[in-house]
């Protein structure tokens, strides 16, 4: 555990020196900011005209756009985690240090996870401000559920990215493999769910988008939690196995 923390905190600090991390933070905050302000504006315009539409929610203006952004940001954040170590030769250092393979993989993932959580903490300003703009305040419980969904979703997708990073020596290969997997889980799996009714339960269950959106609406189902936690565990486990395979390949 201590080793996990050592690896994670080095990785976490590394992100603050990495241009990619700043670009990711910039894009997430920018997108959330734009959506928030423009949604607010259109609702305000309609309120002015005498309609009373539902005000923006944290789910609409922050959580969903951030999750969408993470489809591209997560591969960018994780692509170099282990492939970079391989390229620069430092992987040899870590693999001969008294450190278990899973500690290395989990530490790497945790570093990326902590970084993105830091960005998410900044996005909390939006729901806080929104709460003051809405009478009688936003649905705090649903907002908490939305952030929980976002956090679990991010954990799962970063774990997948970490797994690919430990499989590939090339960062870009890791990036695209991760991105393709995300696109499959986010969009493509939804199609067979509708096309092949017999397997719709199976494909529907794999559909990350469905799990995320239903949690975002405040209905936290056991299966949603299990789904995201399983994805995380599978990602980290596959990453560990990939490192082991690297040793004796």
């Amino acid at each position: 555990m201590r080793n996990v923390w050592t690896i994670a905190s080095r990785e976490y600090r590394h992100y603050f020196l990495s241009p990619v991390a700043y670009i990711v933070a910039f894009l997430i905050l920018m997108l959330a900011g734009i959506l928030f302000v423009f949604q607010l504006k259109s609702v305000q315009d309609m309120t002015y005209q005498g309609y009373y539409p539902n005000p923006p929610t944290a789910a609409n203006s922050v959580i969903y756009p951030t999750a969408f952004m993470m489809l591209f940001a997560a591969p960018a954040l994780t692509m170099r985690l282990l492939s970079e170590e391989q390229r620069s030769g430092t992987l040899e250092l870590l693999l001969t240090a008294p450190l278990k393979d899973w500690e290395l993989v989990v530490g790497k993932w945790l570093g990326a996870f902590m970084y993105i959580l830091t960005v998410y903490v900044i996005t909390l300003i939006i729901p806080i401000v929104l709460n003051r703009l809405v009478v009688p305040g936003i649905d705090i419980k649903a907002t908490v559920a939305g952030y929980l969904a976002l956090i679990l979703f991010t954990a799962a997708f970063l774990a997948i990215g970490t797994a690919f990073s430990s499989m590939f020596n090339n960062q870009f290969a890791a990036f695209f493999a991760t991105l393709i997997t995300f696109v499959l889980l986010w969009w493509v799996v939804g199609w067979p769910a509708n096309l092949i009714p017999a397997a719709s339960g199976f494909f529907g269950y794999l559909h990350a988008y469905a799990h995320l959106t239903s949690m975002m609406q405040g209905a936290i189902a056991l299966k949603d939690l299990v789904y995201f936690l399983s994805l995380t565990a599978v990602g980290l486990f596959v990453g560990t196995v990939a490192i082991e395979i690297r040793r004796w390949q």
Binding site: D139, I220, A221
Partner: peptide, 11 residues
């Protein structure tokens, strides 16, 4: 989990 429909209402 799929067969266990347990949901917590967070609204």
């Amino acid at each position: 989990a799929y067969a266990t429909p347990k949901t917590w209402d967070f609204t």
